[in-house]
């Protein structure tokens, strides 16, 4: 079965960021397909590569990147939500005249249409948030 996941909260602030990861991992381990993980609201902050969590804590962004590498996941960060919150890839940074980008490996920035498409294409869409 094809799943889509929406993540609405940022890392560390709210457990839903972890729950979304644990759920997605379980979906993949059971042999289902994940059409897309879509990060919205403060959820876009899961995609920054500049976070430095304490060494004895999990690194949520790296967990996602590793999962994406293993299963070829599509991790999409909403562009409108990301621009508001200062999450940029190289293109966005250049276009907006910013001096840096901060998106993590395997994440990509795209439009809200990707969420709707995920809702259309996937058999189930599960929202995690506050």
């Amino acid at each position: 079965m094809k799943f889509a996941i929406q993540v609405n909260e940022g890392p560390y602030q709210h457990q839903s960021a972890d729950t979304a990861y644990q759920f997605t991992k379980a979906v993949l381990e059971k042999g289902h397909e994940v059409f897309r993980v879509f990060f919205y609201h403060d959820g876009v902050n899961n995609g920054t590569r500049l976070g430095i969590p304490p060494q004895d804590d999990r690194n949520i962004t790296k967990q996602w990147t590793a999962l994406a590498e293993e299963y070829d996941l599509d991790l999409v960060v909403c562009v409108a939500a990301a621009q508001r919150r200062g999450l940029l890839d190289e293109n966005e940074a250049r276009r907006a005249g910013k001096d840096a980008d901060n998106i993590a490996d395997k994440f990509r920035i795209s439009g809200l249409g990707q969420l709707i498409e995920a809702g259309i294409q996937a058999d189930r869409l599960v929202v995690f948030g506050d």
């Binding site: 079965m1 799943f3 644990q22 759920f23 991992k25 379980a26 979906v27 381990e29 059971k30 289902h32 058999d123 189930r124 599960v126």
Partner: peptide
């Protein structure tokens, strides 16, 4: 558990 969570969604 999480596996059961996935089953409930499916």
């Amino acid at each position: 558990d999480y596996s059961g969570f996935v089953d409930l969604v499916a």
